[in-house]
Computed example of a mutant assay.
Amino acid sequence: MTNAVYTMTVRALAGVVSERAAETMVRSVLREQNLLPETVSAQDMQRLLSGPLLSRLSAVMPAARARQELRTLSGQMAERYPKAPTLFVESGPQATWDDPQETDLWTDLGLGADDFEFDDPEYAAGLSGRSYDLNSTLDQDTLIQTLGRLTGVQGVMVCRASGEVLRVRAVRDANGLAGVVAASAMLFQKRSLRLLSADLGGQTVCVCPLGEHCVAVIANSQANVGRLLVELQQIRVAA
């Protein structure tokens, strides 16, 4: 028998999509996260509301409305379950690229191997993180939105190890970033590296290899690069 957290979530979603669609959506996300309708906790559901469920609902309605609907539900759940606070940020855009004021283009970066600062291979060893299926567009979008919430992040790109771009969100055209990723992929093939970063003078590019894929992030001077590197180190690829 499903529990109260599951029922509350499905009933709320049934107000914006059909009841059948709501139940299918929630059950699919729970299954992907190895959770059950009978035992899912409020803490687990809060994480799903601000991540996978937000991505799913944004695919069937405007992202702003999807976010507002789930933010409301998340707030109601936090009131009912005080030990499970909402994970939605109440002020500011979900990610920097949601701000329409940014209009400039990326410049030609022109980077080579000597421009990169390579990290200590043992940096942040032992940290655990979420797993993402980077062959799934849903998980690609979830990862991009998660990284995009970090202060100062201007763009996130998911690529194949060859440098082929699969998914990208950025405040500016990302052609320059794609070139950096392609160059980085070649460096990863030649050296045993966990990630690398390049200081562009006011901007920093970080690239992390993830098996057959890699993730690139570009951030401005307001970013905490140390935290950004830790977040990249925590990413795990789903088996």
Rank of each mutant, 00 (worst) to 15 (best):
G129A: 09
S41L: 03
L109S: 05
S136N: 11
F88R: 07
T72P: 00
W97D: 07
A84D: 05
W106N: 12
L134H: 09
M77G: 06
S41P: 05
S55G: 09
G92P: 09
M25L: 15
M77Y: 10
P37A: 03
G92V: 04
Y132K: 03
T39Y: 09
E102Q: 11
E32S: 15
M25G: 03
R80N: 08
G112D: 14
W97L: 07
L111K: 06
A95F: 06
A21H: 11
R65N: 10
Q101A: 12
T103P: 02
Q46Y: 04
D133Y: 08
V17N: 01
L57K: 04
E23H: 00
E79Y: 04
M45T: 02
R31L: 08
D133Q: 07
V26E: 02
G51H: 12
D44S: 14
V17W: 02
Y123G: 01
L127R: 14
P85K: 08
S128V: 12
W106D: 13
Q46W: 05
D98G: 04
S55E: 15
R27N: 15
R47P: 00
E19Y: 01
A113W: 10
Q43L: 11
N34P: 00
D98H: 15
E38Y: 02
G112N: 11
D108S: 13
T137P: 04
V40G: 08
D44C: 05
S131I: 00
P93L: 06
R56N: 07
E23T: 03
Q76A: 10
W97R: 06
D133K: 06
L49F: 06
G112I: 06
N135Y: 09
L30T: 00
N34Y: 13
E102F: 15
P85L: 06
V26K: 00
T137I: 10
M45S: 06
Q43D: 12
S74T: 02
S50C: 14
S50I: 01
S18I: 03
R80T: 09
